[in-house]
Design a protein around this nucleic acid. Structure first.
Lengths: 149, 149
DNA sequence: GTTTATGCAAAACATTTGCATAGTC
DNA sequence: GACTATGCAAATGTTTTGCATAAAC
């Protein structure tokens, strides 16, 4: 039987390649997951992804997400209610501005919080190795739409 | 039958009073939970608390933790492995320096990260309403004990 | 006496794991 | 053909909920 292996979007292909470089195989379920993620415009949960791809087992969804996070292509996003979402991570380490109204997120790059942290911590002889920061608030569009604070 | 209502530590009493001011009743299980929390020196999980107080139902543990968090007396601590812990929150909003080696945490107060955040965000017309920051690394004692980096 | 809180057990989630089978290299 | 990945179902861990009972005000 001929196996159909459809070509994905350029972004998806790129993600797959990175996985292959790390020694992970190019499988159909994995392609489906990566393609679905590449098409997403906002953060999502494992469950949402599974609903979108019912033919892919839940375990595979979680295993793929883990691979992608470990490989730095996907980042975890912690919502204010404590729910864990995922989101493509194009540009290395960064933080998120999460709109509590529309739920969208913007990436916060080029901010020297890390440096500042290191300084403040160093003054207390604490050696920083990592951090987790999420910022909640209202995005520009949501401010414009409603009560102009 | 005479009901024994043991007096707790000053800190525990103070926490209880704050709850009462908010209209919550002074009950035996609640006293037990608050007293146990007041005695803790480091962050803990709901499960650990339940093990310590087997006579208090799991549901009551969680309900009490929620009350205390909502009232600002307890704060959530997100460990690097994703586990959620709790810790007394004496001094309003602050952050944690979490040692990944010994697991202890130090409070990080008097740091202007919040201001900086607001500035960076404002430049993008994002209105900050809150944030979550955890800092991971090694504390002074752990650095001293082992490999002097 | 009225209202709130509790304990229990069950339910609801979210995530992981064992294992036999199937797919990739 | 050897090794990795998958799907399933079951297990796990955590937090929530319904509800009858008990305690607090």
């Amino acid at each position: 039987m001929t196996m159909v292996r459809k070509r994905g979007s350029p972004l998806a292909e790129q993600l797959l390649e990175t996985l292959e470089d790390r020694g992970y195989r190019d499988t159909l379920p994995r392609r489906a997951v990566v393609q679905a993620i590449a098409e997403r415009e906002r953060h999502f949960t494992a469950e949402e992804l599974h609903e979108q791809l019912p033919s892919v087992g839940r375990a595979t969804i979680f295993r793929s997400l883990k691979l992608l996070v470990e490989s730095g292509m996907l980042c975890r996003v912690l919502l204010e209610d404590g729910n864990l979402h995922y989101q493509l991570s194009h540009r290395g380490h960064h933080h998120h501005l999460l709109c509590v109204q529309c739920g969208n997120s913007e990436d916060l790059v080029g901010c020297d919080i890390e440096d500042q942290l290191r300084q403040v911590a160093a003054a207390r002889r604490f050696q920083v190795s990592g951090h987790w920061l999420e910022v909640y608030g209202r995005c520009q569009s949501c401010q414009a739409l409603q009560q102009p604070a």
